Computed example of a mutant assay.
Amino acid sequence: MSSDLVPPTYPKVPTWRRSAALGTDLFIVWLLSSLLAYNGLLRFFVFILFWLTLRVFLVAKNQGQSLGRWAFDHKVIDPRYNKTPGLLELSRREGVMGICVYLATLGLSGLVSGNAGILLFWIPISVDCGLALFDTSRNPQTFHDRFGRTFVIGTQRGYSLDIKIRNWVDKMKKDMK
């Protein structure tokens, strides 16, 4: 049996780190789109424009890392070539994810106005990301990972924000004793 038939193993990224990176990117895009467009269709287009800029064009130029992925030490790769995915793969992947997270933000804003039925907007992102929770492979994939034919893997290149926060908390606990 040839060694090139055995799929490589990649460093696994915990789900909470992927979620934290997504939340970081979402916060940046949401803040910028909120400042430029208050409501309606214009806000959707501004949101998607910023989302694609941060999660497609920046990732393509930054070795597979958005700001959130850089902060939490992981990146997106194309497993067929073991390198940063092309613009087409990233656009497919982040087009799906961008719509899901935009709908989720609408769901959150609906809670503020007292409309609990708007929580239905959380179903797409729950289904998309929920696939990774039930994927038993070494590198679990969400729907947008599968659709874009990408993997998210751990990397040494990044800010290690989670480690820095844990060290700060440990130091504060120690100082309080």
Score class of each variant (00 low, 15 high):
residue 53 T to R: 02
residue 53 T to D: 03
residue 54 L to K: 01
residue 54 L to W: 00
residue 54 L to V: 12
residue 55 R to F: 05
residue 55 R to N: 15
residue 56 V to E: 03
residue 56 V to S: 02
residue 57 F to A: 08
residue 59 V to H: 00
residue 63 Q to G: 10
residue 63 Q to N: 14
residue 63 Q to D: 15
residue 63 Q to L: 11
residue 64 G to A: 09
residue 64 G to R: 00
residue 65 Q to Y: 09
residue 65 Q to R: 14
residue 66 S to M: 09
residue 66 S to R: 06
residue 67 L to P: 05
residue 67 L to A: 12
residue 68 G to Q: 10
residue 68 G to F: 04
residue 68 G to V: 12
residue 69 R to M: 15
residue 69 R to I: 05
residue 70 W to H: 11
residue 71 A to N: 08
residue 71 A to S: 15
residue 72 F to T: 10
residue 72 F to Y: 13
residue 72 F to D: 02
residue 73 D to F: 01
residue 73 D to L: 11
residue 73 D to V: 04
residue 74 H to Q: 12
residue 75 K to V: 03
residue 77 I to E: 05
residue 77 I to W: 08
residue 78 D to V: 09
residue 78 D to P: 09
residue 78 D to N: 15
residue 79 P to V: 12
residue 80 R to H: 13
residue 80 R to E: 13
residue 81 Y to S: 13
residue 82 N to A: 14
residue 82 N to D: 15
residue 82 N to V: 13
residue 83 K to V: 06
residue 83 K to N: 13
residue 83 K to F: 06
residue 84 T to G: 12
residue 85 P to Y: 06
residue 85 P to S: 10
residue 85 P to A: 11
residue 85 P to K: 02
residue 85 P to F: 04
residue 86 G to E: 08
residue 86 G to P: 03
residue 87 L to Y: 15
residue 87 L to H: 11
residue 87 L to K: 14
residue 88 L to M: 14
residue 89 E to T: 08
residue 89 E to Q: 15
residue 89 E to H: 08
residue 89 E to R: 15
residue 90 L to N: 01
residue 90 L to R: 02
residue 90 L to T: 02
residue 90 L to C: 10
residue 90 L to K: 05
residue 90 L to I: 13
residue 91 S to Y: 03
residue 91 S to C: 12
residue 91 S to Q: 07
residue 92 R to E: 05
residue 93 R to M: 07
residue 93 R to Q: 11
residue 93 R to N: 07
residue 94 E to Q: 15
residue 94 E to V: 09
residue 95 G to R: 02
residue 95 G to N: 06
residue 95 G to V: 06
residue 95 G to C: 07
residue 98 G to A: 07
residue 98 G to S: 11
residue 98 G to D: 02
residue 99 I to R: 00
residue 100 C to T: 06
residue 101 V to D: 00
residue 101 V to K: 00
residue 102 Y to L: 08
residue 104 A to N: 02
residue 108 L to M: 14
residue 108 L to S: 10
residue 108 L to C: 12
residue 110 G to M: 06
residue 112 V to T: 14
residue 113 S to L: 13
residue 113 S to Y: 07
residue 113 S to P: 01
residue 114 G to N: 10
residue 115 N to D: 14
residue 116 A to Q: 09
residue 116 A to I: 13
residue 116 A to F: 10
residue 119 L to D: 04
residue 119 L to F: 04
residue 119 L to I: 12
residue 119 L to C: 13
residue 120 L to N: 02
residue 120 L to T: 05
residue 120 L to G: 12
residue 120 L to W: 08
residue 120 L to Y: 10
residue 122 W to R: 00
residue 123 I to W: 00
residue 124 P to R: 04
residue 124 P to C: 07
residue 124 P to Y: 05
residue 124 P to I: 05
residue 124 P to A: 12
residue 125 I to W: 00
residue 126 S to L: 14
residue 126 S to M: 14
residue 126 S to C: 14
residue 126 S to H: 04
residue 126 S to Y: 06
residue 128 D to H: 08
residue 129 C to E: 01
residue 130 G to K: 10
residue 131 L to E: 02
residue 131 L to N: 07
residue 131 L to A: 10
residue 132 A to D: 03
residue 132 A to I: 04
residue 132 A to K: 01
residue 132 A to G: 08
